[in-house]
Simulated scan of single mutants.
Amino acid sequence: MPVEFIGYVSAREQSEIFAPEGPEIDPAYIGATALLHERAGFDRALVAFHANSPESILIAQHAASVTTRLGLLVAHRPGFTAPTLAARQFATLDHLSRGRVAVHIITGGNDIELQADGDNLTKADRYARTAEYLSILKREWSSAAPFDHDGRFYRIRGAHSAVRPYRPEGIPIYFGGASDEAIAVAAEYADGYALWGETLGGVGELVQRVKREAAHYGRKPRFSVSFRPIIADTEAEAWARAEQLEAEILARQRASGTLAGIALDTAGNTPTPDNLPTNAGSRRLQALSAQGDRHDTRLWTGVARATGGRWNSTSLVGTAEQVAQSLLDYYRIGVETFLIRGFDPLQDAQRYGRDLIPLVRALIEEEDSRRQVA
């Protein structure tokens, strides 16, 4: 099975080690980043969504306008746009980009952030709304005749779109979330299930769980794992860079008085567990980092601990050859998509394209050939 690589395009340059500078939206940076990913051999690039960030669909449209091959994985939070309108927006962008759009559904596990956009539903209700939202979205993309819908969250009469997805197979839907509610929705609607980087055992457990749930609907989603690879010419140099990155991140947090947006105490210490992110994915990373920094062969959780497990923050550390071998191990347990982005966004993406992605593709091609012979 061909492996897929997803990178990351943001509205301006920033990361855990780079404070954002310049305008909130930098068209030149968006275009340069998108082109770099296309030339580096990435299949797609994620455009993120936050309650205070620039609009993801519009950022993706600009990235699509300067590229010819790169796919865009557009993060989207259901519930703030009518599902029929969202279906037309994504289908329109899909035509403008000639079939390069995929949607990453993020229901959201942070109550405070969601309240900034006026969403006060409970977590269970948010996932129930997401399921209904996706059923309407898919129906708007596929229905040949006007349709009505009577549900808990939406009542619709005569819905019909003149614009459908560019390709007959439609627009892929990726889905993130590790809670029971998230897995139930993903099993029914997701074409790709995305999770943050964990141990081989942890990822394998979620892969099998989602497979079992999806089988009830006759579905077989792809699986995506996100990492922040740290690669260098030697393994020692890679681990030294990892330690340096963690030190830089902690120093920046102490200087600003925050940890991943959470206020530190007066002594500059990290927040108590009660103040850390509580979504299921973050709790899994918090538990993993509490067990130590290094797991399996080269999985590192230093940044996950420093950021409270708030986002994609685990790394594979080593030479390009060593990290490629680790990614092959994840492929062997069912992962076919890797979302990789660096702490130095442009330089790391360039190095991934030069040193890492070709190696992984070659290893997986060799692996598939052996399977066919066997």
Rank of each mutant, 00 (worst) to 15 (best):
9 V>N: 02
38 E>H: 01
154 Y>W: 12
53 S>L: 14
105 I>G: 01
91 A>Y: 06
46 L>N: 02
284 R>D: 11
146 P>A: 14
146 P>Q: 12
345 P>M: 06
305 R>V: 03
126 R>E: 01
175 F>Q: 02
1 M>S: 10
65 S>G: 05
10 S>W: 03
198 E>M: 07
174 Y>H: 11
105 I>S: 00
60 A>E: 03
292 G>D: 02
179 S>A: 15
136 I>D: 00
321 E>N: 15
17 I>R: 02
38 E>M: 08
109 G>M: 07
207 V>S: 04
245 L>M: 11
173 I>M: 02
32 A>P: 03
343 F>T: 01
366 E>L: 12
193 Y>M: 08
290 A>V: 04
169 E>W: 09
267 A>K: 12
46 L>M: 13
145 A>T: 15
115 Q>R: 11
119 D>Y: 10
70 L>Q: 00
90 F>Y: 01
26 D>P: 06
112 I>M: 09
370 R>P: 08
84 T>C: 12
294 R>K: 07
93 L>K: 02
66 V>Q: 03
213 E>L: 11
225 V>T: 04
344 D>T: 07
117 D>W: 13
85 L>P: 10
137 L>I: 06
262 I>R: 02
254 R>V: 06
77 R>H: 05
93 L>E: 03
339 L>G: 05
48 A>Q: 09
221 P>T: 05
204 G>S: 04
337 T>M: 06
356 L>D: 04
18 F>G: 12
325 Q>W: 10
76 H>A: 06
306 A>P: 08
359 L>K: 15
122 T>G: 14
252 R>I: 11
117 D>M: 15
293 D>H: 05
273 P>S: 15
356 L>N: 06
129 R>N: 03
256 S>V: 09
189 Y>V: 13
87 A>P: 07
249 I>A: 06
260 A>C: 11
163 V>T: 10
373 V>A: 12
61 Q>F: 08
101 V>K: 04
260 A>I: 05
15 S>Y: 07
244 Q>Y: 12
270 T>K: 07
80 F>E: 03
118 G>S: 07
206 L>Q: 05
79 G>N: 09
195 L>K: 00
123 K>M: 14
340 I>E: 08
23 P>M: 06
63 A>D: 01
138 K>H: 11
136 I>H: 00
145 A>F: 15
